[in-house]
Simulated scan of single mutants.
Amino acid sequence: MKKNMAELIGTFALVLFGCGAAVISGVSPSGPSGIGLLGIAFAFGLAVVAMAYAIGPISGCHINPAITIAMMVAGKTTTKDGIGYIISQFIGALLGALALKIIANGKPDFTMQEWALGSNGWGDGYGGAYSMTSAFITETVLTFLFLMVIFGSTAKNASPAMAGLAIGITLVLIHLVAIPITGTSVNPARSFGPAVLAGGKALSQLWLFMIAPVLGGLIAALFWKGVFEKA
């Protein structure tokens, strides 16, 4: 229960800090303002760093179903723990998005537009209007690289004190590339919370952000286990 609660709180914080930075501080109706793309990227990355040191000793700080599934496949997380983690992550993400919606509603001119609350998406009207193929490849490849960093920085011969920082910085780099394409998911729970409350196109496109990150994580788990752990 402590592990599951830690995952819930960590995912709640990730969505509130990351998506909150995009919704509240990132842009305005007149165009880019405030912290901008770089600031949003750092908000997500720093949220992971903070949570890694806060709940890492309790649950390992997955706060991402793609990570949990990859860890299960790699034999680093039990199925029992993994299922509990994933359920807690989705609940935490939904609560984080709900908290963000309540806060944002306090602004007089706030409206729930398409892809609201920092939802992920693609195509006409979203970011750089990239295609579905570009979105799928981006999410799969970047999640693969994200998991490779996670496996490497948490390996037995790695420095455990630096793992949270390495993982957080990697997430910043991922956002710098993917924000114009998909808004950056690499995390099904992070996409789930905002999309459920936003509805519309965000919800109809959610499937990609459930499948692509998990696929990227699975490839990374099999690659790491089959190549590096056998080396």
Rank of each mutant, 00 (worst) to 15 (best):
64 N>Q: 05
146 F>D: 09
70 A>K: 03
222 L>N: 02
86 I>C: 03
23 V>P: 02
28 S>N: 12
219 I>T: 04
211 I>E: 04
168 G>K: 01
138 T>L: 08
126 Y>K: 08
180 P>L: 01
28 S>E: 07
83 I>H: 01
3 K>M: 09
130 Y>W: 12
188 P>V: 02
80 K>I: 03
157 N>D: 15
38 L>P: 05
183 G>K: 06
182 T>G: 04
9 I>H: 12
96 G>M: 13
124 D>H: 08
215 L>R: 05
2 K>N: 15
199 G>P: 08
156 K>I: 15
202 A>F: 02
216 G>P: 06
188 P>Q: 09
220 A>L: 03
18 G>S: 06
42 F>H: 00
115 W>A: 10
45 G>K: 01
200 G>C: 04
225 K>C: 05
197 L>V: 13
34 G>S: 15
115 W>R: 10
142 L>Y: 11
87 I>T: 07
113 Q>T: 06
210 M>F: 11
168 G>Y: 07
161 A>V: 12
165 L>M: 15
113 Q>H: 06
29 P>Q: 14
11 T>Q: 04
213 P>G: 04
98 L>A: 13
52 A>T: 09
147 L>Y: 09
144 F>G: 04
152 G>A: 14
73 V>F: 02
159 S>Q: 15
172 V>A: 08
163 A>K: 04
100 L>W: 13
72 M>Y: 04
61 C>I: 02
131 S>W: 08
192 F>G: 15
30 S>L: 13
219 I>N: 04
99 A>H: 12
103 I>H: 14
146 F>K: 00
190 R>I: 14
51 M>V: 06
44 F>Y: 07
164 G>I: 12
37 L>C: 05
10 G>I: 14
125 G>L: 10
98 L>R: 08
128 G>D: 05
225 K>G: 03
231 A>S: 13
42 F>L: 11
91 I>F: 08
1 M>R: 15
229 E>W: 01
31 G>I: 05
216 G>W: 11
